[in-house]
Amino acid sequence: MTNMAEDLKAEAPFLSGAPAPAPEDRRRTQRESPRERKKRTTDVVIYGVLAVLVVALMVPFFWMLSSSLKENNQVLTVPIQWIPSDFVWSNYTDIWTRIPMLGYLQNSLYLAVIITCLQVLTGSLAAYGFSKVRFPGRDVLFLAYIGTIAVPWQAYMVPQYIMMQNLGLTNSFNALILLQAFGAFGVFLMRQYYMTIPDELCEAARIDGLSEYGIWARVILPLSKPALASLALLTFVNTWNDYMGPFIYLTSNRLWTVQLGLRSFVGQFDAEYAMIMTGSVISVIPILVIFLIGQRYFIQGIATSGMKG
């Protein structure tokens, strides 16, 4: 990916005399064998640690998977049964007809994608204002942002609902989008990340005649890929797994999201746990896909080579 930052690095003499070789290359040119041997041992140790961790972290997920293949009355047994006695594969075919699962998935995806896009866009814009532009009242405003994160939603849920009702927005996706797309979380996250980007980069771009908007789009955004990826991932996951918001605002069944659909297996006195777990397994898949796509941005690293922070 070519971007302004790399151009800058190549052009601006004060940034770096010559393009720095990638860390990989440099490592290879230095004393090879002891380093590599050491690296290999470290790798083995790390793999070992990770393998143990993964097992410990996946146990509940395994239970979820195994329960999704049981009859409802076989799920919550004492003692716990790790492997189903009969594999009820039909849960995975039944769920599509028991509830309109496909429609729920579409609704969830629609909400999650729109909210994530808006949150990332407006969040990174506002974060630039909060971190790279200096103007009076900025920090107070920023504290107001952080402050609202500290208020539990349960406290202002009803005033918010009354407002939405008066605007005629309840029972629609718009209500949820408006509520969740402008959260303070994204602004805060991006602002903190932008703080780590040296101001010299912006300065250089200003000297080159870029406007503030140009700096945001062509210098800062390309540099903040890991942060953008994590914000997008976390926003997506939170929206996807949100239950209370859709529950309060979406009444018509055709607007329901996956999380609401799963809860419809909970009755007044009992619940169909096998179906809930089946649905949960299905609903995790989109998150995994997003994660696998997004996670490669975490290793790309940002192009500040040659910078003295």
Partner: peptide, 22 residues
């Protein structure tokens, strides 16, 4: 691409692919 996907989703989502129609 993101915009296109969003727009496409918007259509299906609003058309209410899910569940029994109101």
């Amino acid at each position: 691409l993101a915009l296109a996907v969003t727009a496409g989703l918007g259509l299906t989502g609003c058309a209410g692919a899910a569940g029994p129609a109101e």
